[in-house]
C-alpha cells in the first residue's frame, strides 16, 4: 500500500458553523419585517429607494473588489446589509438618484477608502446618510404619512413642543400605539418599533448581536429623557432609536471589541443621542451619536483591554 497523505495543521480541527456570510444573511432576514412594513406604509417608491441603495452598494463593492483584485462573494453579502440599511434610514420621498449617491459614498468612502472589510471605523450606512443630510438637507427632512407631507414625531416635538405633538395623535397612549406599530412619518424602515424589535430579538436569540448594547442604549435614552422632564416612551419609540440600537450600534466593526468597552460604548450612545435631541439643532440624534461613538471606539477599546485570568497586579506578590 502506498503512503497516504494526511493534512497537517494547527489545532483546533473542529469548528462551529459560524460564518460571516451566514451572519450577514441573518441580519438581512432580521431587517425584513421592518423593510416590508416600510414599503407597505410608504408605497412603491420606498421599495425603489431600497432597491436602488442596495444595488448601488453591491455594484460599488464589486467595482472595488475588482480594483483590488480581491474577488469576494462574502463582501458582496456585507454590501447588501449596508445598502439595505441605508435605504431603510432614508425618507420615503427621495428622488432615486439620492440613495444612489448615498450608497456609493457608504461603500466607496466609508468602507474602501478606510481599507475595506475589517477596517471600517465609521458605520458605512450612517456615513452615507450623514453625507446626504449635509448635502441635501431639505430633501432629507421631507417626510410623509399616507401620501401627505408630515412631520416625524421628533420633528413635531422639536418644533411645537410636547403638548402639540401629542395632541396631533389624540392622546399620549394613541401616540405610543402609532409609533409602536409604525403608523407615523419617518424613514422607510425606522417607523415601527415592533417590527424592529422582532428583528432585533431574532438576532439576539441567535447570538448574532449582544442584548446588552441595544438594552443599554435604549435604557440610557429612556432614563436621561425622563430625568430632563421629557416623555421617555415618546423618545424611545419616535425616531430612529430602535433601528439604530438593534442594527447599527451593534455593527461589529464600529464597536470596541472588548466586552466592557461595548457597555461604555452603548452608554455613550445613549447620552449623546439624548443631548443632541434635547439640546442640539437636529430633532434626531441617533445617526450622529453612533458616528461620534464610532470615532471614540478605538480609544475605549484600548482602555478596556482586560487583564488575563489570574493576572497579578503588583509583582511583589509573586516573588
Amino acid at each position: 500500500m502506498e503512503a497516504r497523505k494526511f493534512i497537517v495543521e494547527s489545532s483546533p480541527h473542529f469548528f462551529s458553523a459560524n460564518y460571516k456570510y451566514k451572519l450577514m444573511g441573518l441580519v438581512v432576514i432580521a431587517l425584513l419585517p421592518a423593510a416590508i412594513l416600510g414599503v407597505y406604509n410608504f408605497g412603491v417608491h420606498a421599495l425603489l429607494i431600497i432597491i436602488v441603495s442596495t444595488s448601488v452598494a453591491i455594484l460599488t463593492e464589486a467595482f472595488f473588489n475588482k480594483l483590488k483584485k480581491k474577488p469576494s462573494a462574502v463582501e458582496q453579502g456585507s454590501a447588501v446589509v449596508t445598502g439595505l440599511l441605508l435605504g431603510m434610514i432614508l425618507p420615503p420621498t427621495l428622488p432615486l438618484w439620492v440613495p444612489a449617491i448615498g450608497s456609493f459614498v457608504a461603500i466607496a468612502i466609508a468602507k474602501h477608502a478606510f481599507g475595506g472589510a475589517g477596517m471600517t471605523i465609521f458605520n458605512p450606512a450612517l456615513v452615507g446618510r450623514a453625507f446626504l443630510v449635509a448635502s441635501f438637507p431639505a430633501l432629507m427632512a421631507a417626510y410623509i404619512l399616507d401620501g401627505i407631507t408630515s412631520a416625524t414625531p421628533l420633528q413635531m416635538l422639536k418644533l411645537n413642543g410636547y403638548q402639540s405633538a401629542v395632541s396631533h395623535f389624540g392622546s399620549n397612549m394613541l401616540a405610543y400605539k402609532s409609533m409602536f406599530l409604525g403608523n407615523i412619518a419617518g424613514s422607510i424602515g425606522e417607523t415601527s418599533a415592533l417590527a424592529l424589535l422582532i428583528g432585533g430579538l431574532f438576532l439576539i436569540f441567535l447570538k448574532v448581536i449582544d442584548w446588552k448594547i441595544p438594552t443599554i442604549y435604549i435604557g440610557t435614552v429612556f432614563v436621561l429623557t425622563a430625568i430632563f422632564g421629557q416623555d421617555p416612551i415618546y423618545h424611545i419609540l419616535g425616531g430612529g432609536l430602535f433601528i439604530g440600537a438593534f442594527f447599527m450600534a451593534t455593527a461589529y466593526e464600529g464597536m470596541p471589541i472588548t466586552k466592557s468597552g461595548r457597555i461604555y460604548f452603548a452608554l455613550g450612545l445613549g447620552i449623546l443621542t439624548t443631548v443632541i435631541r434635547l439640546f442640539g439643532g437636529y430633532p434626531e440624534g441617533v445617526n450622529f451619536s453612533i458616528l461620534i461613538m464610532n470615532a471614540a471606539a478605538p480609544l475605549i477599546e484600548r482602555l478596556t483591554i482586560k487583564k488575563p485570568f489570574g493576572y497579578i497586579k503588583n509583582k511583589e506578590k509573586k516573588k
Binding site: A117, G118, M255, T258, K306
Partner: peptide, 29 residues
C-alpha cells in the same frame, strides 16, 4: 469532516473570540 472551501477572510471584530476565551485574552488582536 473537512470543509475544503474553508478560507480565511478579514476579521470583522465580532468579539466572539474574546467572549469565549477562558483566559480573558484578546485572540484576534
Amino acid at each position: 469532516d473537512i470543509d475544503e472551501k474553508r478560507s480565511t477572510i478579514e476579521c470583522i471584530r465580532c468579539g466572539k473570540c474574546i467572549q469565549d476565551c477562558p483566559m480573558q485574552l484578546n485572540p484576534s488582536l
